[in-house]
Design a protein around this nucleic acid. Structure first.
Lengths: 211, 211, 211, 211
DNA sequence: TATGAATGAGTGTTCATTCAT
DNA sequence: TATGAATGAACACTCATTCAT
């Protein structure tokens, strides 16, 4: 019960942090976040050892809850195409609920950029892997790296969202998802077709572009 | 000559700024930038009225030179597919030369985030439009919005690069470009096919592939 | 008690500010003031939002306490002449305790001069009005504007003090008050006489004295 | 001729300095002053070794020219009363032409306040002495120190002007002069009367209030 | 647990002054 | 003489973090 109350306060602080990072970017202050959460500045430090850790916890927490939500849906996975549709729609759903994070995700809120980016990267990758596995379950051998495929799809989606947001202030999750799928599905099909046998433009073989 | 010297120093400062913003993100200090450029702190303010403006000038300058380089190549445009290949390869080339900017591009380096993002957005969009026109010249009526198409392609590319960089420290421009094209080209063809054939709008879902 | 402690620190800072503005004029540094007050720089900003506001608070606070002291004495007001004597003596008393302010009163301590002067002017005028009313209570209808009369008297006094201070480093409040009254009292009497007699407005020029 | 041209430029700079110190107080910049004067920043330093010296030169120059103007008029001195009228009117005239200086006269434009004030004091005192002598010529033995008398009169005048200016933005030199004289003349007469023989309220005797 | 007063290192920016041309 | 690019010391102000209560 004590713990329940404790976690509740932690959650309140995270929510405030999200609102403020979304609104003011890295310039958001511990003071502001505490005020918004209705606690004293010192209290924030009882739950998070530093501003950096608060920020990272926020990102990790949101990515985590995204993962939890999505995993649920992925269990009822249909064919690969359906999985992809589901993933894109869920991402748009998530992004529309946490638009601020998209703006913030690549911003370092404190010095020491590299270190932070790395941790965010790790969190994002964990999610990506889960999704990749889901796709691979229904479409075992794909000619392109599934993870790369998903990275590209989410990159497409995020960029498009940002474009819409800058242009119109908001975006329509459903419509944007469809636009993304217009681009992603033909490729998925091409990859599958190739998988079955007819190589047309040698998609595969370039594989993982590393250094 | 007088002017040459002036622009030379401006360029030196921009270069130092790029290096430092890349290495330390928004935390990069005017002091550091000046030292790296071999000038006094006050000198930076002779060329840029504020840190914010220095940062924006940097981004705009790089986007601009990217545009100039690309426009050259686009003049010898072949069919749409070739244009797309060219664009992706050039972007990867550019990104590999300005990797730091990718990390920085969405970061606000000073308070007042919204305002800054807007200006960067404007700069990016100007470039995007030029490229969209180039594609439309060789493939006049496309079923998807050309600008959206390009936004998605660049989003794919940038995300993939970041992934590689976090994973391996660097990335191979050529290989990454090819991976991106694996995803983008089938869609372009699908769109063109549709253009030629009888479909009207929705690319996706027309003929679902077997699982 | 909590409040007592807070106000105590505020008072300490104001005292230090007064000493330093007196000694070094507008060039006094927040750093110096903080050090003199025995607090950290940041603490000053806990009590005053800016150097400008610290300076204005100082002036307003001193004028206020001057007003409070004087009001006390004015309640036991005798005839107009006595009121005037009282006022001049109290002013000299106040000035001798806050000599630094006299040097500083017309100095702007930060850019935005006009705005600051206006606020100081307002504070001074509030005091002046209180005094004008006190005089008017005992000498209802005066032929010169009472406020103008008081402005001139205080101008005389302040100038004389500054003269003494530059010349000798200090000044004798009592003696200076008497010198001021030598000039002011005849005029007050003349005004009263006129009030009683047959002149209407112009004091001067009515009966020119022999050379 | 060369010298004539030189002095002309010096004068131009002083004029610009006056305008800018009047408008922006101590915050006025050498840069601004130079621009206003139509010369390069470095040129200012050919004529004045420092900002401080520029400021002091300005004050001294203006006081000097005030002295020159007044001396002219004082040569045709009539009786003491007339001399006083003349002095007050000329001061108001001068002040109305150099209103900015009044605002600036007590402002230190650079650190090192004491040192500057002393020099300004010296300049003002030189003028005061000349005027005191003029009065003493026509009214040889006065019971109050003539210099003190003049200091007080000018203090009255300056204060009244500032009051008007803050209140209405400008002031009427003639009207203000008359208001000042309303206060000053009766005292002069009282002093003279006393001089002649009838002591009424023992004005004299307190004499110079020093430490 | 919770508070919020206190801290002080850190930074963007200004501007008087210099000096090579 | 005249210029104005370059300098760098100086300073107001911020804010993450601590700690006594």
């Amino acid at each position: 019960m004590e713990e329940g109350r404790t976690n509740e306060k932690r959650g309140t602080i995270l929510d405030s942090a999200e609102r403020l990072f979304a609104a003011r970017g890295p310039a958001a202050t511990i003071d502001e976040i505490a005020r918004e959460a209705g606690v004293a500045k010192g209290t924030v430090y009882l739950y998070f050892p530093s501003k950096e850790e608060l920020y990272l916890s926020l990102v990790e927490d949101r990515i985590d809850s995204y993962l939890v939500q999505s995993r649920q849906a992925l269990l009822e996975a249909g064919p690969a195409e359906e999985v992809l549709r589901l993933l894109v729609h869920m991402r748009m759903q998530f992004v529309s609920e946490h638009l601020g994070l998209l703006n913030t995700l690549f911003q370092s809120c404190v010095p020491g950029t590299a270190h932070i980016h790395e941790r965010i990267f790790r969190a994002k990758r964990t999610a990506q892997r889960v999704f990749a596995e889901a796709i691979e379950r229904s479409l075992p051998r794909l000619s392109v790296d599934t993870e790369h495929f998903l990275i590209m799809v989410s990159g497409m989606a995020d960029h498009l969202v940002m474009h819409q947001v800058y242009l119109h202030g908001t975006f329509d999750p459903e419509a944007t998802a469809e636009t993304v799928l217009q681009l992603a599905l033909p490729s998925l099909k091409a990859v599958v077709a190739e998988e079955i046998g007819e190589h047309e433009q040698s998609l595969a073989g370039t594989d993982a572009p590393g250094p």
